[in-house]
Computed example of a mutant assay.
Amino acid sequence: MRKAINLTIAIAALGAALIMPSASASAATPSRTTVAHTAYVDCDEYWATTVVKVRTGPSTGYTAIGQLGKHNTVDWVGENSSGSWTKVRLLQKSTYGLPKSTVGWVSSAYLAYISPCYTSIDV
């Protein structure tokens, strides 16, 4: 036999009561809030040796989404199998307006390793 649950717990010390709804009561739909966070990560810092296009994939056949200026800094994210293209995350807003944390592909020929680093990214 199923019994409907209707439970009341009085908390005298606090002067309050906690009331559990009966099983037949409808549950409220929870609301969701999106919150921006900043994470701090280790990175390998590179810079562009000249003005270079940032692309959506590892070849000139992919769309250019913007440009890095000479000495704009990026974090190494990955590379294609031959190592000729590097997937990067911008460590600063680029000279040409790409926002910090933009991820894209750059020809490895136009990047120079600077040092290990510690940076913040928006997640």
Rank of each mutant, 00 (worst) to 15 (best):
A48R: 01
T95A: 14
S31T: 15
S82W: 10
V106L: 04
K3P: 04
E45K: 15
W85C: 01
S101G: 10
K93G: 13
A23T: 15
S59V: 02
G83H: 05
T73I: 06
G78P: 02
A48N: 08
A48V: 03
G97K: 03
T29G: 05
G97W: 07
L98N: 10
D42G: 12
T60Q: 13
L7Q: 12
G66T: 08
V106P: 00
S31Q: 13
A64Y: 03
C43T: 12
Y113P: 03
G66E: 05
Y40D: 10
A10N: 15
A112K: 14
P30R: 14
M1Q: 11
D44P: 00
A25F: 10
T33H: 11
M1Y: 07
A4P: 05
S120H: 11
S84P: 01
K70P: 04
T63W: 02
P21A: 15
G15F: 05
N80G: 06
P58M: 01
T49G: 09
A109L: 12
A23D: 15
S24G: 12
V74H: 02
C117G: 13
L68M: 06
T63F: 07
E45I: 04
S107M: 06
T95F: 06
A4G: 09
R2G: 08
S26Q: 14
I9Y: 11
K100Q: 13
A27E: 07
A4I: 13
L18C: 09
L14G: 14
G104E: 01
A28W: 05
Y40A: 11
T119L: 02
Y62W: 06
Y113K: 13
W105F: 09
T73Y: 06
D75I: 01
A48T: 10
N80W: 01
R2M: 11
S84V: 01
T8F: 05
T50D: 12
S59N: 09
T38P: 02
H71I: 05
G61A: 12
V103H: 09
P30A: 14
W105G: 00
